[in-house]
Amino acid sequence: MEDLSILGLTVAAALTATALILVPGVALAWGLARSRASHLRDLLETAISLPLVLPPTAVGVLLLALLSPQGLLGSVLNRLGIQLVFTWKAVVIAAATMSFPFLVRSARTAFEEVNPRLLDVARTLGKTRLQVFWGVALPLAWRGVLAGTLLAFSRALGEFGATILIAGNIPGHTQTLSLAIFHRYQLGKDPAALRLVAISTALAFVAIWITEGVSRQRAKRLLT
């Protein structure tokens, strides 16, 4: 029973995190794909990719500096009565931050694969930039965007380092699958930990299976 509630909490947090980053992530990916090379773009790209290379715990410390009640943003929120750190919201924020680059990079590649001349032609046919995005770019890049979304979701499911720092490990509140596995193992409850490992494996398997399937279809379409 406890296992199921941990699973539920994990999936809900990962889904919320993915939903949260979907629109800004896709918009940013589109902007990066269509913008001309500049230092500003390079800077932005590097900043977005930081969570990919930084130790997740380092990201956690940075988030803490930002969101703790003494933090830059956290102090403001605190005055408004909003508490983020060590709540379920912090789990979502940690997962969103860590999975954001996966979505942006994958979607960006998909948008870059769309022939820019097709977008030009669409403009001459009377369509605005936004209409061209919805009518041409997104329909042609959707598989890559979807693959990126699933990848981001998978990353969110397994988030550990940043989560434990800003959300703690509170059973029933912020304890996700990966936190619970670590916790149970430390307490020597190996069989209980293994049950969660099995659940995680099944979940990851399904997520990756779908991602791969979508990517394969995309590759096949590009070849024809």
């Binding site: 097709l118 030009d120 032609v121 669409a122 046919l125 009377g126 369509k127 605005t128 042609l140």
Partner: peptide, 30 residues
């Protein structure tokens, strides 16, 4: 003047039809 406001039809060398749309949808696009 933005291209979508010029009312100038452009037929590029490669045709550049929208690959995700059939011929009729391509014709109806604009």
């Amino acid at each position: 003047l933005a291209p979508e406001r010029r009312r100038i039809g452009y037929v590029p060398q490669e045709g550049l039809l929208f690959p995700h749309l059939d011929v009729e949808q391509n014709l109806r696009f604009g």
